[in-house]
Each structure stands twice: as structure tokens, then as C-alpha cells.
Amino acid sequence: MSITIHDLRKSEGSYLPGSASCPGCGATIAFRIASRILGPNTVYVIPACCFSIIQSPYPRSAISAPILNFAFAAAAAAASGVQRAYKFLGKDVNVVVWAGDGGTVDIGIQALSGAAERGENIIYICYDNEAYMNTGIQRSGATPIKAITKTTPMGKQEMPKDMPMIVAAHRVPYVATASVGYPFDLANKLEKAKRIKGFRYIQIFSPCPPGWDFPVEKTAEIGKLAVDTYFWPLYEIEEGKLRVTIKPRKKPLKEFIRMQRRFEFLKDEEIEEMEKLVMEKWNFLLHLERSERVF
């Protein structure tokens, strides 16, 4: 059964109004939905990221769930320890890492890879705002090519890491991409992840108004456009089998690109080139979808 808005409204989330997030924050939309699915029997491990600040300063917290704030590089390792302790003590608790893209694809990749390889029974959620936003918009390994950040003032020259595929190559039971622009798809994936045992990974596309430089009210719209232009395809890999979960009618990439000033240097020809990359990836995913197993 798919999750409906009524299911979500009935469930209790762990986000309290009046946090330190920026207006229009995509990551908080993601958290509001995720915490509803994950439920009250959940503890979060949060490495340095926007959520370190969004929580608000001591002695108050805008998150009504237990949180272990942890060092940048080691969220997945700390979560492994938490989960194993619960296992040792005979407690059944959801242990969830809630991390940004820097703490996931860059500095935290080693601990993440180790936990995935060991098959730790945790859910790792990366809310991906495609750069180091908490430190003021510097490029990360998840920043898309051509995007302006404060450390790539002329636009990034390199392609981002394909983190969901990197995690999937560890042959973990569940990997998915999601977007705040498709909240029900996100909710369903979390629901599925929650029911699976072992290492589960979800990367949520989370638009960032100040970081990507778009009007604050367009967070959800951009999150949806990313999917509809195939810039951020939504898929899941369950036990090695890939399925593209949302197959929208393709919109021109230009619509997504031109809404954000981080791509303001892009000429139309360059958008055309990016369009080719996007289609290549999309077709590759469809190809993988036809295979028995991806990994």
C-alpha cells in the first residue's frame, strides 16, 4: 500500500517549528517526512552538517527525537556502535544516520563504506543539497558540474560522485534516490527501507535556496523539476534489482537550470551538452532496470 497524505498527517513527526533552518529549506521538508515514517522508536546520529545548526543551540532542540551529534567523518561508524550496543542489550531500535552530502560522499565516505560492507543494520540518509552549505556554500563531491560555489566561483569543472551507485556496489539490501519534490515516493522508500534489515541507503535531493540561489518559494518546485528533467532520476535498488520509480514525461533541462543562479554561467550550448549527459544517465538506468541484477 502506498502512503497517502492522510497517513502522513496521522503520524507524528520529530520536527518542531521555530528551528534555525533557512526559509524554504529543502532538508527540513525531507526530515519532516522521514521522521514521520521512521517513527518514535528511532535514534539519529548526525555528523557536522546543516542539521547541526538547524537543531538550534543548547539547551534547546528543534528535533523531538534522540540525537547523537557526532564528528564529521564518522557518523556511520558511531551509528554502527549505537546499533550493536542495542543489539547486545536486546533492544530493537531504528538507528538512522542523518547526514549532508559532504559528510556522506566526501569526509564520511570511509566510515559509510565500512558500515555498508559490514552490513550494519542501520538506515543511512543523505540529504543532498549538493555542496557544503552549512559552512557557506563550498563545492563537495556531490556538487554538479558547472555549478558555482564559493570554491568554484567560475563553476565546478568535475562531475559529481555517483554515491547511490557506489553504495549499491557494496551489495547492500536497499539503495534509493528520492527528492523532496516527490514526497510520496520518498515516504514509500523510507517505509520500505524501514522494513528491510541490514544497511539501507537513501539519498534525498534537497534544494537549498541560498546555496543554489533561487527564490525561496520554489524549493518543492525545483525538487520536482530535477526529477522531471531527469537531472535527478528517482530509482531504488532492492537486493541488487534496480527499478526507476518515477518516469515522468521529460521536460527540457533548461527549465531546471535557468531557475538557479548557481548555473548562471551556462550557455545554451552547455545546457545542451548537459542534457546529453542527463539522457545518457537516464538511458543507462533504463538499461539497468532491464537487467536481472545491477550488483
Binding site: 547523537l68 561508524a77 546499533q83 550496543a85 542495542y86 570511509q110 565500512g114
Partner: peptide, 27 residues
């Protein structure tokens, strides 16, 4: 009788035991 986490680095070893101790285990 213990959980043994064969971590991939010392940084993770220490992170894991801190997490485990925070959840109530002797580490």
C-alpha cells in the same frame, strides 16, 4: 559474549565505541 565491530579504521573504532557507550554498553 560481545558484539565485535571489525571497523575500517581507528577513527571509526573510536566512533563506534563512543556510540555503543552512549547507547548503554560497556566498550
Amino acid at each position: 559474549n560481545a558484539e565485535y565491530i571489525r571497523v575500517e579504521s581507528e577513527h571509526s573504532a573510536m566512533a563506534a565505541v563512543i556510540g555503543a557507550a552512549a547507547a548503554g554498553a560497556r566498550t
